[in-house]
Design a protein around this nucleic acid. Sequence first.
DNA 1: CTGAAAGCGCTTACAG
DNA 2: CTGAAAGCGCTTACAG
Lengths: 336, 336
Amino acid sequence: MYNVTISDIAKDSGVSTTTVSRVLNNSGSVSPETRERVLEVIKRRGYSPSATARSLSKRVSSTIGVIVPEVDNPFFGEVLRGITEVIDKNDLTLICCNSDDDPNKDKKALEMLKEHRVRGLVYTPAIDYSNKEEKRSLKKMLKDINSPIVILDREIDYLDLDGVFFDDSKGMYNATKALIGAGHTKIGIINGTLDRVLARNRQEGYLKALKDSGIIPIKRYMFYGDFRMTTAYELSKELLSMKDRPTAVLTCNNRTSMGFLKALYELGESIPENISCIGLDRIEALDIMGINFNYIKRDAREMGRQAIELLINRMAFPDKEPIKRILETPVIIKKI
Amino acid sequence: MYNVTISDIAKDSGVSTTTVSRVLNNSGSVSPETRERVLEVIKRRGYSPSATARSLSKRVSSTIGVIVPEVDNPFFGEVLRGITEVIDKNDLTLICCNSDDDPNKDKKALEMLKEHRVRGLVYTPAIDYSNKEEKRSLKKMLKDINSPIVILDREIDYLDLDGVFFDDSKGMYNATKALIGAGHTKIGIINGTLDRVLARNRQEGYLKALKDSGIIPIKRYMFYGDFRMTTAYELSKELLSMKDRPTAVLTCNNRTSMGFLKALYELGESIPENISCIGLDRIEALDIMGINFNYIKRDAREMGRQAIELLINRMAFPDKEPIKRILETPVIIKKI
DNA sequence: CTGAAAGCGCTTACAG
DNA sequence: CTGAAAGCGCTTACAG
C-alpha cells in the first residue's frame, strides 16, 4: 500500500500540484471553490503531506534535535517535559538522543543530527571534553551542525553559544552558608572531579562560603566522584566512617544524594539526626514522604522550556549576541 | 553558509554522483583508487549525506516514532532508556512525542509522525479510547500511519497489533495473595476507573485472589482514580479516614503509590506499622532509603527494549502473526 | 568499474 | 486565480 501524494490529490481535484500546494500552505491565492474541492479530496483520500519532501524542497526542516546524557534521570525527564511543551506549541518535531554520558555516543548523536539537518539543537555535552584535541574536535562538530545550538546545564566555556544554566555556585554558596548558620563548621562535600565545569562551580560556591565565614576548608572532607549513584555511595561510606567525620554534607546532584542516603541508611543513621545534608535537586519521593531532605531547588522543566525558547529565538535572529540565561537556585531548608 | 552536497563531492573528485553514492553506501563496485579519492574529498569538505534526501529517494525513512503519555514519569524514563539503547545499535533515529495523556495531543502526535513517514511506531495510547466513535477514529489513524506499530503497556484490545505488556493481573493477584497470606482480609485498592484496560487488569487479579481465598470483596474498599498522584492523594485521605478502614492497600501505579504515601505520612502514620501496602512499580528512592515499600516489580527498560525489538522484527516480516509479549511481574516483599 | 537520466514528493519563482 | 517547469539532494535501474 502506497502513500497518497500531492499528485494524486491534484489529479483527483483536476488542478495542478501548485494549487494543491497553495491550499496546503495557505499561500498564494486560490478561489474558494477550488480550495473547497481540493480540501474535500484531501480529506477523502486521507492525504497528509510528506514532511521529508517538504523539508527537502524548502531547504529547512522542522526538526529540533536534543541530546541528553541520561534519559532515565528524573532531572532530564523534567527537562524533556519542558522541551516537548514548547516544541508542540510551535509545530516542531523532536529528535531525541541519549548519550549515556559517553563521548562516543555523543559524537554519533551529533553526526546523526547533522545528517538530519536539524533546524536547531539543545545540547547537554556528555562530559567535559577537556583535552585540547577533544575541544577542537567538539568545536568542529558543533560548527558542522550548521544550525543554532543552545547549551543546557553544562557550559562549554570555550564556545560562544546560547545557553541556559543554573546558578549552581550561588546555590552551593547559600547552602553552605545555611549549614554554617546552623552551627556546622565541619562540612563535607561530595562532588564530581574538578575537570568538569559542573564540579568547579559547585566547589567554588562551597569554598567561598567557607572563606566568607572564616572557616578553613579541610581537604579530607572533599570527595570527588562522577555524579553517579554507585560512586557516591562508595565515597559516602568512606566519609561516614571517618573518625573525625563532617557533621554536615553537601551532595552535588540528585544521584549523589541517593548514593549518600543509601550509605547513611544502611548504617541505620538518618538525617538530620546523625548528620545534616543539603542536596542539589529535589527528590520527589523524599519530599512526599515527609522526610526532611534539604535541597537546592532547580526547576528542570523551566530549564527545558527556556532552552527551546532561546533556540527558537536564535532561529529567527541568527546574528544577535549569544544569550546566557542563568536560573535561580533557591535553597529549601526542611530541617538542618 | 550552505551545506555541502553530493554534487560538490562529485565535482571535487572528478566523478559522477552515482559513484559518490556508491562509495557512501558501499554498494556496487568502485575501484580502490576512486574510492580513496572520493573518501578524501568527503573528509576534507566535512560532507555528510542528507538523511532527508536519502529518505525521499529511497522511499523509506530510518526514523522511529515513539509516543509516551508522560515523559517525566520515571517509568517512561526507563522505557525510553531501553528504547534508545536498541535504536542506537540499529542506526535508527528516534522522534519522541509526549501526549501528556491528552487524546488531542495524542492525535496531533500521530498525525505528525505520519507526515514524517516514520518507519515504525512504539505507541502507548493516551487513554483508552472507549466510545465507539473514538475507537473507530483511532483505528483509522493507526492504519493511516501505514507502518508497523508496537503497543506498549496499554493494550488496545480491538486492534491486532504487536505489543509488550506486563502481566499486571498476575502481579496484582500475587500481591493480594501475599497480603492475605500475612493475615489481611480487609484489603483496599486504589485503582484507575474501570473504563481503562489497565485498571480492569489490576482489578481482575485483585478480585480473583480474594475469591480464591474465600474473601468477599468490599465495594467501599475499592477506589477509582486516574493514576495521577493528586487524585490518589485525595482518595487515600478518604480511605485512611474510614472508620472501618482496610488494614492493607494495593496502589496501582507509581504515581498512585506516591499519593498514598503522602496522605499516610501527613497523618504521621507509616508502613507497615499502621497499614500495609504493596504498590505497582518500584520507587527507587524508597528502596534506597531502606524504607520497606513492597512492590510489584516491572522492568520498564526491558519493556522498552523488547518493544523496539518487536518493531524491528515486524519491519523485516510485515506479514507474520502479531506477537504479544507478556513480561513477568514478581512481587517484592520487604515487610508486610 | 562508471555515468546519464529519471524519479522520490514537495515548493517556488515565473508567466499568463 | 492558475499552471508548467525547475530544483531540493539523494538513489537506482539501465547501458556501456
